[in-house]
Design a protein around this nucleic acid. Structure first.
Lengths: 346, 346
DNA sequence: CCGGGTCTTGACATCGATGTCAAGCGGGCC
DNA sequence: GGCCCGCTTGACATCGATGTCAAGACCCGG
């Protein structure tokens, strides 16, 4: 008869524990929450009963009644949790949250505004304590209605428009500018730009940074050396092929996103040009050092972004009500070879 | 006066909507849940009130009272959500879940039994509807007490011990055997084994498959050609260096895990041996095709594992109570060059 | 015009917990 | 001995929703 008295419906409740321990449910609640002022012998009895019944507090019921209504859960809306950039942010966030006993609900937005809204709605229905979001919409004003007052929102990788909230972003324009500077230092004058969907603000910032750096140096950018909206591997391959086989082909390429960089490397290898055409990518990726030549990149620091976003969330939850701020995480040039290829002596 | 009547505490409740629409809360509840038998004009009034107040149902309160107690949330305990293998599973799971309006709570176990238990407890406290778990413990009997009766549990990548539940795993032993067969076909006789922590069951299965395939072919395996417990990049580099510089060095390497494979490639490149020593890795990874030589691997299909696990979860939730099954997802040999290097003519 | 059925509707108990408050008890002080 | 005080403890209302059930409106046939 070691059978525990489990009710058929599922878990034991405070009531069951109270009955077994011979005390009121309130006393059990006090023991569970380590409130002071319970006689030691009752504490022992309650703890014994909890063990016997495998009691697990029901967090949903608890947070329903609790004054602050906290659920110890925060939501992360990222671009695609399988993409290394998003996955690193997610992981860093998890580490910060776990120290505080908080769990993460994650969802992939996939650059779809509809998905984003649906997810926000699903998260708020679960009354998450905070939202960390890489938004795919042009304007986040809708959050004003969706998110209840006082729920912290922190934007990662994108700055908010139409909604006041903290954000943690990479210094996209400056990073793109430094990539251009690096290539120019190595003698390049004709540099092509390969970018993702223009609906993505980071892509626009990188494009702006690129153009500005070129203009500052008096270098012209031919419009057929700028490719936008490359969102699949095929898009990129077509663009690279077209750009490199035209007249007056560029001697260097700037790939403004990690998937684009990888697709570009693959295309260069197929064309046998990986040692002829210089390449700098934006955002680092695993194994960039193992490819020949190694891929020079402007590395972002997704882990730092996630960590910082997490810290801001908890500061806000702890009551920090200073004005919303935009935190900029710098990029770092990682030299590996592809960005140091000189232009052909003409 | 477009100000909405929002209570200071946060969201509007059924009560608020009911008051504004001039009906009872039960009628509002009926409209929210699309229950039939409400007069059209009341439906309209309620919907107008819901819009005016930005009403969002409180899922926690709802699931507390609901007969089935479902929270529309499932938990995923994976090894490390930033590792591509785990991230793919996570993503596939998310896709299956989202179709059904279910969200995912994820946590990284990091091969730590303590973390695993703590996470399981945190998840059950939130009354998740199901658990998908890549367990790091030797025995999962403890789940019997933790998980309430009727909550589906599906193991991924590891088979359960001491707990009856469905599992979805890769055919580790057979895959390792096929890797050996492939190398032998290309003329290798001295093959080394590089494996992860022996506490991980998949590592043990791959090791078993490796040894069995060697033995079947009458090929001896020297104990100093077997390296276990390589869990950091440094561990692997040391092991590879030691193995390749010993006498009678192996002519081929079998790396039993993706991080180990990558570390091995890095080490071979540094030693300048990447075109001399053959290498087959277990588990594919991004850019394996871009390295020179391309890395031949026994590819797992994490996306299929995640999808299948998700489908099993929902079948169980829908009432399927057939006996627990172990689903095996086959591996696939992906030939890219590193595994086809012949042994040096002695 | 009345009995019986269907259709709407809302009052009320309930899910599992926490917050409020007052009762009961014992001890110290005047 | 009586009063006040602090410490424990439990009864009860409550959080935001759903399930139960009965009341009332309405229509039908007899």
């Amino acid at each position: 008869m070691t059978e525990t008295t489990r009710r058929p419906s599922g878990h034991a409740t405070l009531r069951d524990v109270a009955a077994l321990a011979g005390v009121s449910i309130k006393t059990v609640s006090r023991v569970v929450n380590h409130e002071p002022g319970v006689m030691p012998d009752k504490v022992v009895a309650v703890e014994r009963a909890m063990r016997m019944l495998d009691y697990r507090p029901n967090l949903a019921a608890s947070s329903l009644r609790r004054a602050d209504g906290r659920t110890a859960t925060i939501a992360a809306l990222l671009e695609d949790i399988a993409n290394p950039f998003s996955a690193e942010i997610h992981r860093a966030l998890e580490d910060v949250a776990r120290q505080r006993g908080v769990l993460i609900l994650a969802g992939s937005v996939e650059e779809s505004p509809e998905t984003e809204r649906a997810l926000v709605r699903a998260f708020t229905a679960r009354r998450v304590d905070a939202l960390v979001i890489a938004s795919a919409t042009e304007n986040q004003g809708y959050l004003e209605r969706e998110v209840s007052d006082g729920t912290p929102v922190v934007f990662v990788d994108r700055t908010p428009v139409g909604f006041a909230a903290d954000s943690v972003v990479t210094d996209n324009a400056a990073g793109a500018g430094r990539a251009v500077a690096h290539l120019v230092t190595h003698g390049h004058q004709r540099i092509a730009f390969l970018g993702d969907l223009r609906t993505i603000t980071t892509e626009r910032e990188r494009h702006t940074g690129f153009m500005q750096a070129m203009t500052e140096r008096g270098l012209p950018v031919r419009s057929d050396h700028v490719a936008h909206d490359l969102h699949t591997e095929l898009d990129t391959e077509n663009a690279v092929q077209r750009i490199l086989t035209g007249d007056d082909a560029p001697t260097a390429l700037f790939a403004a996103q990690n998937n684009i960089t990888v697709a570009t490397v693959r295309c260069l290898q197929r064309l046998g040009l990986e040692h002829e055409v210089a390449l700098v990518g934006f955002d680092d990726f695993p194994l960039a050092d193992l490819v020949r030549p190694g891929v020079t990149v402007m590395a972002q620091d997704p882990s730092a972004i996630g960590r910082l976003a997490g810290e801001i969330v908890f500061a806000r939850l702890a009551g920090d009500d200073s004005p919303a701020e935009c935190h900029v995480v710098p990029t770092q040039l990682v030299v590996r070879g592809s960005g140091e290829i000189p232009p052909p002596a003409s």
